[in-house]
Design a protein around this nucleic acid. Structure first.
Lengths: 223, 223
DNA sequence: CCCAAAAATGGACAAGCGTCCATCAAAATC
DNA sequence: GATTTTGATGGACGCTTGTCCATTTTTGGG
């Protein structure tokens, strides 16, 4: 036991962070006031100042928490994936588009923070960190694919593939933000894999399933 | 002359809208207060209530204005493009990534409004309208390309191409938002055209230049 | 030139914000 | 069980917000 004191302390900290995220998801950042937060957390007014020194710091901590949760989820998923770079890329794409990660709550929170990112340096940092780590994971996989395939201009191809994949995923998130009802996860995944199949026809197939090892084929006209 | 009265009236309305957009771009939505707005516009406090009936309506009008400006700019650009669907698509892509459209001010404003869109129905509407019109323009062009090429599953291919192109552009905007300094317009365009070349090898080349009419070729392995 | 009409002004106002601290409750230590 | 220590409480505070309106200024018509 870590002492009932410290245990409660941490529990309340988490309650505050959770309340901020709930409020941001439901009402947006501009309506996430101190009163709103403490009401949701069921705690007293002074707690915010006590634990975080002020509302701004609490919001920042919430952004941090959200960012970590996203990345941790993706990393957990990645550990169940095989070693091959194709499998890892596919896992990231499918994970990023899965219900677990891409849902109304997360999207609301993410875009709310993004909107404020330009004016709140601390938040921008976490926004960036998340993207940076994801970028690293994807780039790593593509670098291996490119190396194996012996593509000319290897670093350029890996960079473009990383850039394009991330941009596509980002665009899919926006799509979901604007039209959560008519969003189609399968269609989104299919389009990403179309892009990947175009860049690495020997590694990805249009169906989105990983192409089994075989001789290189250079042709992939429309289905 | 439309009467000095009405002329001034309209001028002040525009000044208020401009002040809102400037403030949103520089300080973000949460710091765009009535005081901030009227100070920038150099007008008196009561003007907002007089011309728009309240701050919320003014902000909505500003979102509308921004949305219209974006689309008008793109449409003007399109009028200088040729008739071929390839040219039109290329014009849209290059236009959307051009300094004129994709710059710090526009990106800040756009993402600030997006962040609030979920909680302000009126703003979400304009956000949607812009996307909808752009989508229509692009889909139209791809539908023609697909028809000419006689692709099987024509409507599906056009839809995927539209979806993918928009998602990629969206992702590029996000990229610019987060890293305006190290953003490379040429690289962004190249990646979009890579995607297009993969889907329609007979119509787009990897270099981003439109491929002159010629016999169909189905192969486009890495450069 | 004068007067009615319209537009612009800026201060008053209530409501809501975030911060802080005197007070209280409870856990840890002796 | 008494005492110290630490976490938790909620009201008071100063400040800013957006709204509104009595007043002043400007414009256009007679």
């Amino acid at each position: 036991m870590a002492g009932k004191r410290e245990q409660n302390r941490e529990q309340n900290r988490q309650a505050l962070i959770g309340a901020v995220l709930d409020s941001v998801a439901e009402k947006g950042i501009s309506e996430t006031s101190v009163s709103e937060i403490i009401q949701r957390a069921g705690l007293s007014r002074g707690m915010i100042h006590l634990h975080f020194g002020g509302k701004d710091n609490l919001v920042q901590a919430a952004a941090h928490h959200s960012s970590e949760a996203y990345y941790d989820g993706l990393e957990t998923l990645l550990q169940t994936a095989g070693d091959s770079p194709q499998e890892r890329v596919e896992m990231i794409v499918r994970g990023d588009l899965s219900e677990r990660v891409l849902n109304q709550r997360n999207v609301s929170i993410w875009y709310a923070f993004r909107g404020e990112a330009r004016n709140r340096k601390a938040i921008a940092e976490y926004s960036d960190t998340r993207d940076g780590r994801l970028r690293g994971m994807i780039h790593n996989a593509f670098a291996r694919i490119v190396r194996e395939a012996g593509t000319p201009d290897a670093s350029g191809a890996a960079r473009d593939a990383t850039h394009g994949t991330l941009a596509l995923l980002e665009g899919m998130w926006t799509d979901f933000l604007l039209h959560p009802d008519r969003f189609d996860r399968e269609e989104a995944a299919r389009i990403v894999f179309r892009f990947l199949a175009a860049m690495f026809p020997a590694h990805f197939s249009l169906a989105g399933a990983i192409r089994p090892k075989q001789g290189k084929r250079g042709c992939n006209s429309s289905p």
